[in-house]
Amino acid sequence: MGDLINRILQNYPYIFALALFGIGTFTVLTHSNLLKKVIGINIMEGSTYLFFIAAGNIRGGVAPIKDMASQGEVIHVNPLPQALMLTGIVVSVSVTALSLALIMRLYKLYGTVDAREIHQIRNEVRASGNSN
């Protein structure tokens, strides 16, 4: 038992990241408000950043910048996950922009940002035989 608690305490960032990932995914899948879905997507992507940055972290390490003035041994954290997450941020910015543009388009076409209502309107249109 003590061993388990110790392991949890040592790996808490990963557990937080996975919990956040779950929250984000749950939000996307269950909320019918489209804007909330986009927020869920952002929470989910945020959790992956946490996951990677935690993987590259060294306790007591400093930012991976070579400081000409400092003397002696300095521990740097792993810069690779940070660089990767910059790419991840770029991707999530473009996904967010694309989804916001789509939401505006949907609002103009259907007059609502609720997925369930949009689905209803869609079904009514399809049932009336007008395949748009």
């Binding site: 922009a97 916001l100 543009a101 505006m104 388009r105 103009k108």
Partner: peptide, 10 residues
């Protein structure tokens, strides 16, 4: 471009 695209939709 993204900003303009979002604003023009309005």
């Amino acid at each position: 471009t993204l900003f303009n695209a979002l604003m023009e939709e309005e």
